[in-house]
């Protein structure tokens, strides 16, 4: 009986087999650069630049990591800055984005169209162009020797307002009406009704924000003049030892350290997102 059941399950699965194999092949292709990055960080310098390259370290070593942590440039200072800046940006964006998205989604007011046009048009202005003027603004405010120039300019997340507004619109108006009848304040409505229903969207937006801020390189390059305020992305060029000709194993090790936290947070958040999406899908 059991054998028959297994056989049936296998037969049911068969049509998916080809598709799944293809998926695994694609996954391997996608993951390969990661794999490459990780194993290079465990090689010695000589083996890292060897030709032809080896697919598995001949001499598995922690040399690169040891060098990084024993350098006189403080890894932890950079890491700490990354953490503070990223947390700051996410908090600031939530504070600004949530009320705005709520207003655009559920409230009617005079000049709504104009406000919306202003928000959308901000999408068209390229970030690279704004480096110099914003630097001048921050400089005049005396904020350059601090972490603020990396946090404040990113306060308004237009794409986030977009997505959150879409999610808020899904909330039925009747819920809001009945809440208002129960004399709930607007704040309570947002916190108790809107946000929980838009959880998936909010988590996604925060995740994207986290990734974007954690990985940003050129912005802090322009805005910081001192190790005290530099984030982890700028740490890589310090381990490069470019005069020696790019210590690849150290560079990859620094990259692994840079990607590590993001990967962990993503794995944690993606489960929540997938569950949230699946919940939303059941209609």
């Amino acid at each position: 009986m059991q054998q028959l059941q297994l056989k049936r399950r296998f037969v049911n699965y068969l049509p998916n087999l080809f598709s799944d194999l293809l998926k695994i092949a694609c996954v391997l292709v996608f993951i390969f650069p990661f794999y490459w990055m990780i194993i290079t960080s465990f090689k010695t310098y000589g083996e890292a630049i060897q030709v032809p390259p080896t697919l598995w370290p001949k001499n598995f070593t922690l040399e690169a990591y040891h060098n990084i942590f024993s350098m006189s440039i403080s890894f932890w200072q950079y890491a700490q800055n990354s953490i503070i800046v990223t947390a700051g940006v996410i908090i600031l964006q939530c504070l600004i984005m949530i009320p705005a998205a709520y207003a655009f989604a559920k409230r009617q007011f005079v000049g709504k169209g104009i406000a919306w046009a202003v928000v959308i048009s901000a999408l068209m202005i390229p970030g690279t162009c704004t480096y110099v003027p914003i630097y001048m603004v921050m400089a005049k405010a005396g904020l350059i020797p601090s972490l603020w120039p990396q946090i404040i300019p990113h306060g308004c997340n237009v794409f986030g307002i977009f997505m959150l507004r879409q999610a808020f619109k899904q909330v039925p108006d009747e819920l809001l009406e009945s809440a208002r009848l129960d004399s709930a304040t607007e704040a309570q409505i947002v916190l108790r009704i809107m946000l929980p229903m838009a959880k998936a969207a909010l988590i996604t937006i925060c995740l994207f924000s986290f990734i974007g801020t954690w990985n940003s390189y050129f912005w802090p390059l322009v805005m910081t003049n001192n190790d005290k305020y530099r984030p982890l992305t700028m740490y890589i060029e310090r381990v490069q030892d470019a005069d020696v000709g790019n210590k690849w194993n150290q560079v990859m090790a620094a990259n692994v350290l840079l990607v590590g936290p993001v990967l962990l947070i993503y794995l944690f958040a993606s489960q929540k997102i997938i569950r949230a999406f699946t919940y939303n899908g059941v209609k």
């Binding site: 630097y135 001048m136 921050m138 400089a139 005049k140 005396g142 350059i144 020797p145 390059l221 003049n225 001192n226 190790d227 310090r238």
Partner: peptide, 22 residues
């Protein structure tokens, strides 16, 4: 001592620093 960057970045930062007063 503060590491800033390559010669190009260093020049620009030194010029920009005048604006920020530091």
């Amino acid at each position: 001592e503060v590491y800033i960057g390559g010669y190009g970045t260093l020049q620009t930062k030194t010029q920009m620093a005048k604006q920020s007063g530091e």
